[in-house]
Nucleic acid binder design. Structure first.
Lengths: 149, 149
DNA sequence: GGCCCTTGGTTGTAGAGTGCAACCAGCGCA
DNA sequence: TGCGCTGGTTGCACTCTACAACCAAGGGCC
């Protein structure tokens, strides 16, 4: 209500969103690596998705995260060599491999999740619940919009 | 187990913020590269900073963006070879080089800025001015909090 | 002045992450 | 049976990055 809707308001906000998201993106990888060297940002994300979904195919991961299938193949290979992921050949279709976190994978995932949650929690400690909820909703909305690209 | 972060939506929101920011970060580089192959995300950011600041030292760029000085050195080298940045030796201290965008650098920066703004603008087209403003404010607040890490 | 420490910057090296293209292996349909 | 499609791997090339070793120029301090 008290928000003035001048034409310049939109542009300034868009500009700012752009700058801040970019700034965040630039730092995310390094921060993640510093925090838990044993599981890169990408590995964490993939493993996390496997955990949430209760397993899926490499192709699904590629589609979900807009990665090349070769990249996924290598990442999964690394996770497997590290003993964090196991593959099951689908009995109905011998082309597909169902990927699942191993117990060790689930364990380390839980640890990293805790430490990530703590870090994010600290950063967001003095935010009100309402602000957190709104911020989350905005991010979801934004990502939903970019998923089509 | 029996509690889905009921005590507060806080945890759920923090989790979501975490996930969405991570998801964004993972895509940012690729998206930027696809949009303007001539200027990577990092190069764009560095050049942009030089433009805003009216020039600065390589060390300043490294500090600002939490990059190793060798990385900055190489990035700046590439920008210079591309004719987008020029160096001037500081007359007061012959160790330092003041970096400045060339006219060509300013030109391409302007173009990329326009195309970035258009892309972000499209994604955010159906957002109300109030939502944009709030989203921008949240992002600024978040980044401000992480800058201390 | 001469020595030493600090600061700004470059280069050598190594490794992660990535995409593209070529390839192989099952599947399904005509 | 043959052909095209789908899931996945591998070879290759490239970028981004950090760390370490290095060089060059200040700035104190004796």
């Amino acid at each position: 209500m008290a928000e003035p809707d001048r034409p310049s308001g939109r542009d300034a906000a868009v500009e700012s969103i752009q700058r801040e998201l970019t700034s965040f993106a630039r730092r995310a990888r390094a921060t993640a690596a510093r925090m838990h060297p044993e599981l890169s940002l990408v590995s964490f994300t993939l493993l996390s998705h496997l955990d949430e979904q209760g397993g899926c195919r490499a192709t699904d991961l590629a589609a979900q995260f807009a990665l090349d299938k070769s990249t996924v193949s290598r990442q999964v290979g690394a996770l497997e060599r590290a003993g964090l992921v196991m593959r099951r050949v689908d009995p109905d279709d011998h082309r597909v491999q169902v990927l699942l976190p191993t117990p060790a994978g689930a364990e380390i995932l839980a640890q990293v999740t805790v430490s990530r949650r703590r870090m994010f929690g600290e950063r967001l400690a003095d935010w009100s619940a309402q602000d957190l909820t709104r911020f989350a909703a905005y991010l979801e909305r934004y990502n939903e919009a970019s998923r089509e690209d």
